[in-house]
């Protein structure tokens, strides 16, 4: 579809700002996805396969070594692992995106925020490829998918906002201090244990659980488990808080990135 109507001022170039940005993001994300999987014999199945293998291995291992895992542990584990995988891959790749795609920084017609957005979305497609597997695991483990799962897409979008916000801020830091990407991988390596990925906050003491709830990734994972596995709705207050935090982080990260990306080229 071509844009309808003529703007009051002549639009600069073939497409106006926002439409052009969306076009670029779509084109570049599809391209990244193709580069990642096109030359592989199994193609895009590689996006799905790691999720399957990870669920099976972790499910077998953890249900053996953890004493009290609860009835739907496998499904809860699958939700946590898939969500963390996107968070950690997305933040890590967004952090290095201005350096690894410096060719894009030398394109005058390319809005700078496109670069981290494309890298988070590319990892987002890997996540989406894992979602059908996740649904199968939930179906097999709990015997059904609750109606509350309709809220799941909203939580996925919020998670995308959070990843992008954190990634954009880290990207700015990484252009100025190249240590940042190393520090980010260290934090992510520790973060997987500080976040209820392999466990749920139910098994924690009340004090620890309170602490874990302050972690927005943890809160997101818990909310995803609620709507997808338990079939309960998160309280309106916690949902609102989650929305404010995720959108707030994105806004802040975007603003920082917008300000500093104007002089990225000088630092390369």
């Amino acid at each position: 579809m071509s844009p309808v109507g003529t703007p009051a001022r002549p639009a600069p170039g073939p497409a106006s700002g926002a439409a052009r940005t969306v076009q670029l993001i779509g084109h570049l994300t599809a391209r990244e996805f193709r580069i990642r999987y096109q030359s592989a014999f199994l193609g895009w199945l590689w996006a799905l396969l790691p999720a399957v293998v990870r669920f099976v291995v972790l499910g077998v291992v953890f249900s053996q070594i953890l004493p009290t895992t609860g009835p739907d542990y496998l499904a809860e584990l699958a939700v946590g692992v898939l969500a963390w995988q996107w968070f950690s891959a997305g933040v890590a790749s967004a952090t290095v995106s201005p350096l690894s795609r410096r060719d894009l920084l030398s394109q005058p017609a390319l809005p700078r925020p496109v670069i981290p957005v494309v890298s988070v979305l590319t990892d987002g497609f890997d996540y989406l490829a894992g979602v059908p597997v996740l649904l199968v695991v939930v179906l097999v483990d709990t015997g059904g998918i609750p109606v509350t799962a309709l809220l799941f897409p909203l939580l996925v979008v919020l998670q995308g906002c959070l990843i992008l916000g954190v990634g954009m801020a880290a990207a700015v830091a990484n252009v100025h201090w190249r240590d940042t990407s190393l520090a980010v991988s260290l934090l992510l390596a520790v973060g997987i244990y500080a976040t209820p990925v392999f466990y749920t906050s139910r098994v924690l003491t009340e004090q620890l659980a309170g602490l874990v709830r302050l972690n927005p990734v943890g809160a997101l994972i818990e909310a995803q488990r609620q709507v997808l596995v338990e079939g309960t709705l998160p309280s309106a207050a916690s949902l609102a808080a989650l929305t404010v935090v995720c959108v707030g982080v994105l806004t802040a990260g975007w603003a920082v990135y917008r300000h500093w990306s104007a002089t990225f080229v000088d630092q390369l």
């Binding site: 600069p12 170039g13 073939p14 076009q23 670029l24 084109h27 570049l28 391209r31 193709r34 580069i35 096109q38 030359s39 410096r102 060719d103 894009l104 030398s106 394109q107 005058p108 017609a109 390319l110």
Partner: peptide, 30 residues
């Protein structure tokens, strides 16, 4: 709208076809 011939070929991917890369270069140019 500005377009630039500043750094040629930087965005090309060896795994994709020449046609694919040419389309991307033209998209990046505007």
């Amino acid at each position: 709208a500005v377009s630039g011939l500043l750094a040629l070929n930087g965005s090309a991917s060896g795994d994709l076809s020449g046609a694919d890369n040419a389309v991307t270069a033209a998209v990046l140019a505007g």
